[in-house]
């Protein structure tokens, strides 16, 4: 079973952090269909967070078709993200590795590479919205 953690300095609201951790778990294959998510009371008692936060996160996941709540039983994973978990994206990973090597040869340090990636990513996403 997945165990949630919260980063209080991230600025991302706690409910979104839970949503992201479930999505992340699905994408990396750590969560599989049929698996149960921790109950609201368990999450609350472990993290000392507001029960509504957990409910809201689970509702959002349900809305996205990733989990299903079964009355009185719990919340279960019923969906998946993408055709294969991220481990299966070998060719894409190799492309990225090639690109990273190229960036290093161009003299970029880790921080610049990250900044460049984030900036391009953000620009791309913004273009998609517009």
């Amino acid at each position: 079973m997945i165990e949630f953690h919260l980063d209080s300095r991230s600025g991302v609201s706690p409910y979104l952090q839970i949503v992201q951790q479930v999505r992340h778990g699905l994408r990396l294959g750590m969560l599989e269909s049929g698996e149960q998510l921790p109950t609201v009371k368990d999450v609350v008692a472990r993290l000392a967070i507001n029960p509504n936060t957990v409910l809201k996160a689970y509702r959002e996941l349900e809305h996205a078709g990733l989990v299903t709540a079964r009355q009185g039983v719990g919340t279960f994973v019923t969906g998946s993200l993408g055709p294969t978990p991220i481990g299966g994206h070998g060719p894409l990973r190799r492309d990225l590795e090639k690109w990273l090597a190229k960036a290093r040869r161009a003299g970029l340090d880790d921080e610049s590479i990250e900044a460049l990636f984030r900036d391009t990513f953000r620009f791309e996403s913004a273009q998609d919205i517009a």
Binding site: S8, P14, K41, V44, A45, A48, I49, N50, V54
Partner: peptide, 25 residues
């Protein structure tokens, strides 16, 4: 406190001068 609220669904008002205490709860 939060586990109790999750169980019985009571309204809570709590004061604090430290926001960090409240952020999650």
């Amino acid at each position: 406190l939060t586990a109790y609220v999750a169980e019985v669904g009571v309204s809570v008002v709590l004061s604090s001068h430290l926001v960090a205490d409240l952020e999650r709860v």
